[in-house]
Amino acid sequence: MRRRSIFLISVACFGYALLYMPIVSVVVYSFNASRLVTLWGGFSTRWYVSLLSDDKLLAAAFLSLRIAVVSATLATALGAIVALALHRVRRIPGRILLSGMITAPLVMPEIITGLSLLFLFISMASLIGWPASRGALTITIAHVTFSMAYVVVVVRSRLAVMDESLEEAAMDLGGRPLAVFFDVTVPMLLPALLSGWLLAFTLSLDDLVISSFVSGPGATTLPMLIFAKVKLGVTPDINAITTIIIGLVIVAVTTAGLVTNRRKAASA
């Protein structure tokens, strides 16, 4: 038994090392004054400073953020409706089709999603003249389509454990259906809607493959730019971007953790 737990502990240590080693190394080397990975040229923030003057990169980051915010918001709204309908409405025309269309993007290879959407946009443009050009709009549409599926999963799992008598109570007290929805359902679903939004936001911000397919000239998202750069190897400014993103994630996760903890403490 003793020997086995040593085995387990060492495997776990190896696993966690595997998960965190690359992240840590990128963070450390983002402060390396030298351009070479192997050479420690002293502590420096020069790569961060050079980021600020990289207009192309800033534009890509801004475009990515804009697309992520819009697509996450739309995906959350649409996904919440689908989740609610699948949970509540007994007779949906083509229920199997709907639940198929909402689960398929979760397992669909990105490359196929990207390719098929591109073909759609091209066909639509030649048929009805819309969308006239590909760019931020088509990327947003693509992101909404696949991240909606993730929102549905998150919201449905919350709905499954929600006490439905809360809504009945509100209706019993005189709330009409729409009022009940905003007075009770939305506040109860809020944690799920928030995590669904965050998930959609992250997926959008992170997406390389689908964006590459449906984007057009002039619209380069941050992952597309990064990909173009890192195909040629390590570049210190990408290390700096990675570090910034890691910092943001840590801040977000800690805040989310604190909020849930406070809520738990409040309800204890």
Partner: peptide
């Protein structure tokens, strides 16, 4: 008549108090 138009109120077994 739907629940919200009845002069009837229900006390739920789970109480169904709005937690928020």
């Amino acid at each position: 008549a739907p629940p919200y138009e009845r002069p009837v109120n229900l006390m739920f077994q789970s109480y169904a108090l709005f937690p928020h």
